[in-house]
């Protein structure tokens, strides 16, 4: 996995062969522009510890496929926007896992433009909010006129831990074409009392039970990272970092 280094002048990357990329240093970085050339398959993994305030613009050219894993463990106030455009036959799968803690306020906007026929997008967002944290997932799928046979799916799940925690999911489907498939699902809810009771009845403290449940909830994001980063994410979830 190749690391992409960001700076505060320009961050333009072109992917012209099958290769996987990794970003974990966002500090002060300007907007990021990533272009996948035609017929390329790639995985982009992002780990944000300090938060990223800006735009990530991604263009996926004809018949290319990009899978994105975005793990967010920042403790501050951030507005992150991901804009994805799809050419003919292009596919994107976007996974986001965000742990939003006390005094954090985060807005993630993921927007996908289906500009041509036979395009595919899946937005799959998971969030956990603690204390007085606030987490908003905005999703916008725009299937433009002429983009027949395109498919889009948005899924957002947020688990709120405390009474003051706020989780909001706003999926939007803008559809300008017939003969397409579009759907969304959103769930915001508190941790199940039954699940907590079950784990605690086996001797796990409430805190440990919550860590185990949070870990299970955010774990799918692990698939996008190598073992070292997985260990880091595990520690972040356990609150050890």
């Amino acid at each position: 996995m190749k690391e992409l280094l960001l700076d505060n002048i320009s961050n333009n990357f072109v992917v012209d062969k099958n290769e996987n990329f990794f970003i974990n240093k966002f500090d002060g970085a300007k907007d990021i522009q990533i272009t996948l050339n035609e017929n390329v398959e790639s995985v982009l993994s992002l780990l944000s510890l300090s938060g990223y305030e800006g735009n990530i613009n991604i263009k996926i050219s004809k018949d290319s496929r990009l899978e994105i894993y975005y793990a967010d463990f920042a403790k501050n106030v951030t507005k992150t926007k991901v804009n994805i455009s799809l050419e003919k036959g292009a596919k994107v799968i976007f996974h986001l896992a965000s742990l939003t803690v006390e005094n954090s306020n985060k807005l993630f906007t993921v927007s996908v433009d289906h500009d041509a026929v036979n395009t595919y997008s899946l937005i799959d967002n998971y969030g956990v909010v603690k204390g007085n944290g606030k987490l908003v997932f905005d999703g916008i799928s725009y299937i433009k006129n002429g983009s027949v046979k395109s498919k889009t799916r948005q899924s957002a799940k947020i688990m709120v831990f405390d009474e003051k925690s706020i989780g909001i999911a706003k999926p939007i489907l803008k559809i300008d074409e017939n003969d397409i498939e579009a759907s969304h699902g959103a769930v915001v809810g508190k941790i199940s009392d039954e699940h907590l009771f079950y784990l605690m009845s086996r001797g796990l403290s409430e805190e440990k039970a919550k860590i185990l449940i949070t870990y299970g909830y955010l774990k799918p994001i692990m698939n996008g990272f190598d073992e070292n980063i997985q260990a880091t994410i595990e520690k972040l979830i356990e609150g050890k970092m």
Partner: peptide, 18 residues
């Protein structure tokens, strides 16, 4: 309860350790 995402063996090990 079915607890999604929590691996049975992780849970059992945590319980034994407690």
């Amino acid at each position: 309860s079915e607890v999604p995402g929590v691996i049975n063996s992780d849970f059992l090990r945590a319980a034994i350790n407690e």
